[in-house]
Design a protein around this nucleic acid. Structure first.
Lengths: 141, 141
DNA sequence: TGCATTTATTTGTTTAAACGATTAATGTAT
DNA sequence: ATACATTAATCGTTTAAACAAATAAATGCA
């Protein structure tokens, strides 16, 4: 049997984690983009021009790679990314973000940033550090 | 712009929250039940025999009530719950858990409990308390 | 009472997630 | 070099989520 405090802490993490992605998802919807699509764009931006494969995207997303293909499909439709065969391994696909994708992402980041504004300042830097550390410790990291 | 520590803490919450529900969901799948269905069963058990309406379930689930009907449908198919018209207000439905539902839930709780076993002990009671408090404070509660 | 409004649940429809199977390219062992 | 296994991405199908609309009962009130 687990302690009450254990479940309360776990519950906070679960509820808050889902609540944040839900809220962000709603904000993004105004821009006709889903949360996973947004995530892919951010990953691609982080590559700073370097191409990345479907598999690598999947690894950073904790999502089935089967669906990453379809997420990239959607982004292609909107011309926010490029997809081309990897020259050294024709099984792989090189995905990059387009200029339009970068511009769109800037708007999205802005919107998401405003969502976070309301929480910024509720915890001190030290408290934020403690929070992250405690969750990692909870997971055994 | 938000601090690095802010994003790290938020990231931990999101990733961990989703990871836990994913893992629990996988465990439950062996028993042919989904996470939302499991949630409804737990809410019903908490009622200790007291009937509860679809709407009240929805409020405790942070889910669209449109889908709660369908979740209850699934549970009815498995004979884990009862649904009957509320005698005082015929718009409402009184949902209760059946004996079979309680027995099934016991098994599920057991399985989920074993999942949590691995983390129990990673944090002290005091740390768990701090963790829950910090998340609440982050949200401004 | 009669009628508009609100409340509670259900149903319909579109979209995305989960999972498996498939295709195609590459790596490896004989 | 050929056969076999592995890897990478895609496609197909089933199931659930999101959202809107519909149904039906209760409430408020002129």
């Amino acid at each position: 049997m687990h302690s009450k405090k254990y479940y309360k802490a776990i519950h906070q993490i679960i509820v808050t984690g889902h609540w944040i992605t839900d809220q962000v998802g709603k904000d993004l919807k105004e821009y006709g983009i889903t949360e996973p699509q947004f995530n892919v764009l951010r990953i691609l931006k982080g590559q700073k021009g370097d191409p990345i494969t479907v598999q690598e995207i999947q690894e950073r997303m904790v999502q089935r790679s089967s669906n990453v293909t379809r997420i990239v499909d959607k982004l292609l439709d909107k011309e926010l990314v490029n997809r081309q065969e990897c020259p050294t391994n024709r099984r792989k696909m090189d995905i990059t973000i387009t200029q339009k994708g970068l511009e769109e992402l800037e708007k999205l980041d802005d919107k998401v940033g405003h969502f976070h504004d309301q929480f910024q300042g509720n915890l001190s830097e030290e408290e934020l550090e403690t929070l992250a550390t405690l969750i990692k410790k909870l997971k055994g990291e």
